[in-house]
Design a binder for these strands. Structure first.
Lengths: 243, 243
DNA sequence: GTCTATAATGCGATAGAC
DNA sequence: GTCTATCGCATTATAGAC
């Protein structure tokens, strides 16, 4: 496995509860705002960014929705980041909510794609399947933290009809993980007390990666994925990893 | 230990990634909106709600900020829930941002209070200390999910100066957990690879409880706390719990 | 303390020239 | 496709009567 080297600063950001990165507030030396996120660059998956102005609008919307929330970022803000007039935006998208809907769709499709590939290539062993799913989930969040934040935290700004597909995909993912846990428990590979709570815990683990992972901390994406796979296997009592 | 009985509905809500509760969208029979949260009742800690209209305004703001976000809920919305004119609100609070700041302050003070009590009463054993901290964090989120959601997800709407105290308290909590993990690792009670990542993982676990815990799922607050304490102990390789 | 009325600003979105 | 200009409306907040 190739491990890329990242610049190492002083430590890791966030941890206990109550959201988000931390950063000792009086000693702030970082260029980013610790109140919401760590990452700064726009980060749509490869191959899905529309060409030209359309793509730049979507990237700007992603950045601003992630940082200020859907209702906290205006059409004029987005246009300013792109460097166009706000009216020009409507030549590319029919409205603000469509931007959010498109971002949330892209985010959930990326998750579906990665989870599907991971599960398909994992073989029949429940521990290997669990490891593959957790790794895929963590890497989606390290590779596209802004997209994950928007998909995770801004769904409430979408109308119920537009939110339904995302909710359906979440249910799919939940059931996929639940089935793996059930099989592992039935086969004796896992020692799981409550499958539903264990699934929730594993899902919660990876989801917050988007809030703290970034170039300001000393881990590579693979290191985080490895560590979290180990956590998940420990959670289910699987004796695989070190320890 | 006293275990209260809650009404049991059909199952558990959320799990995998990408935020929030799920709920198979086409079969929705629930009265609440699955796009953001499960709980419905306002839930300020006892003894901190101001008397009279002032308190009712704060409760309404909590409910609406949690559901729609700070920028998604207007002063008029809050006043409508309280049953007063929007202008009356300014006789009690100097502005909208003060409402959010007060809620975030209350939320973080509740967390500090509970973590402090838990740690103080835990004795010297690192495993007992870890269990106490995780239990306290989980119970804060089960008991005050709306407050936790607002404190977790709406900090970005606060000015940096107003957000600083919350960030400082998060750092305190992070260091408290980190110190416990370090001591357990040094004494051999824990088998921890990377203390910082383990702390992040444990913190992430409990934080999302606010998003799915509610009267629509079959667990009591104590059952969730017990389960998550077990998860945390497994994460650090402590051989205490069942398994 | 609560109200009516309204000021001042920003919002999403559109019309129409180029 | 991009612009200038603007409409209609919602926003936070204030003034002043009661």
């Amino acid at each position: 496995m190739v491990v890329t080297i990242r610049p190492v600063h002083y430590g890791v950001n966030q941890s206990f509860g109550w959201d988000d990165p931390e950063g000792a507030p009086p000693v702030t030396q970082t260029p980013w705002d610790p109140r919401r996120l760590t990452a700064v660059a726009a980060d749509l998956p490869e191959g899905v960014t529309p060409p030209g102005t359309r793509g730049r609008i979507l990237q700007a919307a992603l950045k601003l929705f992630a940082e200020y929330g859907f209702h906290g970022a205006s059409i004029r803000d987005i246009a300013r980041v792109v460097g166009i007039n706000s009216a020009t935006l409507y030549a590319h998208y029919p409205g603000k909510e469509h931007l959010l809907a498109e971002l949330i769709r892209l985010g959930h499709e990326e998750l579906r794609h990665r989870l599907g590939e991971a599960y398909a290539g994992a073989g029949d062993d429940p521990a290997a399947q669990l490891a593959a799913l957790v790794r895929a989930q963590v890497l989606v969040h390290t590779d596209h933290p802004l997209l994950a934040l928007v998909a995770n935290h801004e769904l409430h700004a979408l109308s119920p009809e537009r939110a339904a597909p995302a909710l359906a995909l979440r249910e799919e993912a939940r059931q996929l993980l639940g089935a793996v846990l059930e099989r592992g428990a039935a086969s004796g590979a896992f020692d799981v007390g409550d499958v539903a709570l264990t699934g929730i815990a594993i899902g919660s683990l990876g989801m917050r990666v988007a809030n703290w992972f970034g170039p300001d901390q000393p881990y590579t994406r693979e290191q985080v994925a490895d560590a979290f796979v180990g956590f998940a296997l420990r959670l289910v009592g699987s004796p695989l990893p070190r320890g």
